[in-house]
Design a protein around this nucleic acid. Structure first.
Lengths: 203, 203, 203, 203
DNA sequence: AATGAATGAGCGTTCATTCAT
DNA sequence: CATGAATGAACGCTCATTCAT
């Protein structure tokens, strides 16, 4: 009776409101790009008043940063999960899994990625461009594999950057040029490139 | 009678005017970014009136496109020149030259590149992201080398995209993280990665 | 059970709450000016929630009015006290005391005065500008002195307005132009002006 | 034929445009106060587009400053003209003229004065409150009269401030309290106060 | 009585674009 | 060709005020 009944409660758990705003923003950014999306469209999309936006974010750039963080964390989690499926000493398998998860992760959210990381009004600082957590994770794997004698990589961080971005742009390119991307073939080719790049294909 | 005579001629060869506008725009884009640069700043920089801008370009995006084209052509020319220094059948040398010229070209103009290709108000269409002429040139080389038995590359276009972007981002990353980039070492590492990726380093 | 008990009682005597709000407002108005001070700053300053403000005042202009009243009453009390130190028939002394107390009162709170009386978003109605109680009190004194043959003042109210504001602005001016105001000399000069103005300096 | 015919020229001499904007602003400030008047109302009032305002002024405060300057210059000119009607050595006459011109000048534009000098969003700096040119002019006159033995004034600047503001506020007060102000009587009373204050009324 | 999340009207300002000269 | 005054749509942001709890 007394509770929550008529006219839905105007106030919600902050976490939830914040998320609804982020979701609305992401949806609109995907649809029209970040720059042309207005705060008002976001709040309308989240079914709140304009002012409410500023209760949770200080500016449009602020939501973008939040979305970038969320995106990177989600992708990293996905990759980690896949990689950990492999036997501890199966380095080739790990790198293959990494490639596969990366391809899949990107194909599922390329557009979002680009809007978040390239489409910002002012380009994110260079450091931001390089999505550190994911690259660091790969670099760690390359280093460990090198130490374990699985392959030979001089500068794991450098190589990680190279591979990560090579992969990313190859996926981009495929996405842009093929009507339906053949994930399997693409992952396979990228696996070959990655394995070769770490000096592996030596049977 | 009295008028129109004194002071430099107000009209110039269209080509020249257009170039002055592009140069002014590029200078300002480099300094402040493309989005925050106003048409008025550009025309002031080119010492013409605001309206004159619209005689040569239809919008800011239009100058950006022109600058992108100019940038890509200049870089491509540089790479071609370098690659052609090698003996016709020295594929390894060609690939090495390609890498070197690419690294040098980028290091000389990274900031411009990023402002032109990533900093636009609306991200350039995906196709544009992949700077076709340069990548096509590399793909051609990879294909020819494969045909000549110099190396083995399944899908030259795909591989070209991968290498080109891997290289590009590795340079970005170095630029962003090292105070003074060691060009030699960087080119060397990238050469190794590229050679390995095409399956070369055999013996 | 668990609730509502611990921590200071949330409700206070209305008088007290109201005063705390006025004090917070006054402090902030002094520091930043009235117009740029927000209701939220006031409530934060008084350690209550935003909504509480509207339990005691209907708007910002409403607190301003309350502060104006408080200011005038305090100054008037001070002047009265000083003037009443003089012998009943010592009119010259009374006027001198009036001057002195006025000078001192203003010097002690000029900034507040101006923010309250001049800095309001909308200028206080003209009637408000003329701080009636104080002027009326002076007018009464002038009238009584005139009746007692101490001096000659045609229109006491008019003269009171003239003297009161002349004094006030002279103090303002000194405050604004001298690093350290010499109160004694200033009071003396103002006494001369006031005495002359009522036709006193006879012999 | 060719000239100025159809559809009135969109562009006007800058001086004129600027003045039209100032006039529109002044009219609106008088009607509603400065703070509540919006830029858009001003531009509508001047029959130009909103953006045009920013071609001539950088903000609302900027127009206010311009209006303040114009007001003070006009009033000073009026006073000077009146005072100069008197014989060179007729100091009493000069002071009387000063008083009269001041009263008249204020009665004609009190409301404007107050809006300009008291009603600003942020109070004009204290120095501005004291309209220097006019007061300086009076101070000069008091000093000259003192030197000529016409009266005795210790500190002409101080006295000028006192008289100027006394006069101003007395006019204010009358304006606020009497339906129809009797200019003659008011000027007469103020003359008496001013003359007395400089120690004049002897015989 | 007190709270504070939510509201939304309102305003200043910018700037790409037009067009009369 | 070139000019630059004028335009006006668009947007980010603030903050007084409300109201469900």
């Amino acid at each position: 009776m007394s509770a929550a009944s008529k006219s839905r409660p105007r106030t919600k758990p902050p976490e939830e409101r914040r998320e609804e705003l982020m979701n609305a923003a992401q949806r609109l950014f995907l649809k029209h790009g970040a720059e042309p999306t207005t705060i008002e469209q976001i709040t309308t999309g989240a079914a709140v008043a304009k002012g409410t936006f500023y209760l949770y974010f200080s500016s449009k750039e602020d939501v973008l940063a939040a979305l970038r963080g969320r995106f990177a964390q989600e992708l990293l989690a996905r990759i980690k999960t896949e990689v950990e499926q492999n036997r501890e000493d199966d380095w080739k398998g790990k790198l293959a899994s990494w490639t596969e998860a990366g391809v899949a992760g990107y194909l599922d959210s390329i557009q979002l990625h680009d809007i978040l990381f390239y489409g910002a009004p002012r380009p994110p600082a260079r450091k931001g461009l390089v999505k550190n957590d994911i690259i660091d994770h790969l670099a760690g794997m390359l280093r460990a594999g090198d130490a374990a004698g699985a392959w030979s990589v001089d500068d794991p961080q450098f190589t990680a950057v190279f591979l990560f971005n090579g992969l990313h742009s190859a996926v981009d390119h495929a996405q842009a040029n093929e009507k339906r991307v053949n994930r399997g073939r693409m992952a396979q080719r990228l696996q070959q490139l990655c394995l070769r790049a770490v000096g592996l294909p030596r049977e």
